[in-house]
Design a protein around this nucleic acid. Sequence first.
DNA 1: CATAAAAAAGATAAAAAGGTCTTAAATAAT
DNA 2: ATTATTTAAGACCTTTTTATCTTTTTTATG
Lengths: 143, 143
Amino acid sequence: MLTKTTEYAIRALIFIQARNLKGERPRLPEIAEGSNAPVHYIGKILQTLVRHRLLASAKGPGGGFFFAKNVPSISLFDVIRLMEGEAFFHRCGFGLNNCSVENPCPAHDQYREIRELYLEKVTRLTIADLAERVNEGKAYLDV
Amino acid sequence: MLTKTTEYAIRALIFIQARNLKGERPRLPEIAEGSNAPVHYIGKILQTLVRHRLLASAKGPGGGFFFAKNVPSISLFDVIRLMEGEAFFHRCGFGLNNCSVENPCPAHDQYREIRELYLEKVTRLTIADLAERVNEGKAYLDV
DNA sequence: CATAAAAAAGATAAAAAGGTCTTAAATAAT
DNA sequence: ATTATTTAAGACCTTTTTATCTTTTTTATG
């Protein structure tokens, strides 16, 4: 399961992208409201995303958050990897650090299947796709 | 992802079951070592499990932890439900409380697939099966 | 340039999770 | 009955996560 922080990040990115697709550039307070996260906290999170170039921002009047044009949309995988760390995707289901094919935990194979499905999904899902679904009224971000 | 506490619980239960199958009744210090968890902490966790009848215990000399005979082995689902709560299995991937078929989050269907696979797996996997794998030397619990 | 708008940064606080220590209660064995 | 052994219970501490508040920096515009 993702941490709250990562969930906020994903929701905020989808919200920003949805607005960007409509030609808007949302500012922090709107993003916080739209993604149901505390303003200052989401501020910090977006700051991290910008620092790592998953997102762009502009200060001052007319500023806000936006995605760079002509850059392929980031995937959920990109966001999760940044927020949770690469290890998140390889973690043993039972929390064992040694867990591997040679030294498997008792549910190694079963968890592998789940992880693989998960990885496949989050790699395919892009923020842009998800934002489009929101703009089309097919999906919602309200808590 | 499971909390550390739940991981400890699962590892401890498998350890206890593995010993039970060999006719032994492990005590706290051994369980803590065998499941790589802090003694006192695992003590609390097992206490919870006993209180909810997923496990049995005996105080005093010759005491320890064990599973009631002739009771079908509990599944990972049972343990996870107790430790994390029923909601764990229905939680939205993006942390949205309203998320449902009528009001889906942008990745609702994809996450549903993953959840269903997960649910199927943890329902099928019993502590006894997993413990057997350990006793057969096919799986390990070391961190 | 002065001003206002906005994100960035940093310091701090509150809450939750994880972990330790001490004492009490139960029980088997002598 | 006393003692030793063992889990149960409760109080307390530490770390991590989540959240807030304040100040600084950047920038567009009059």
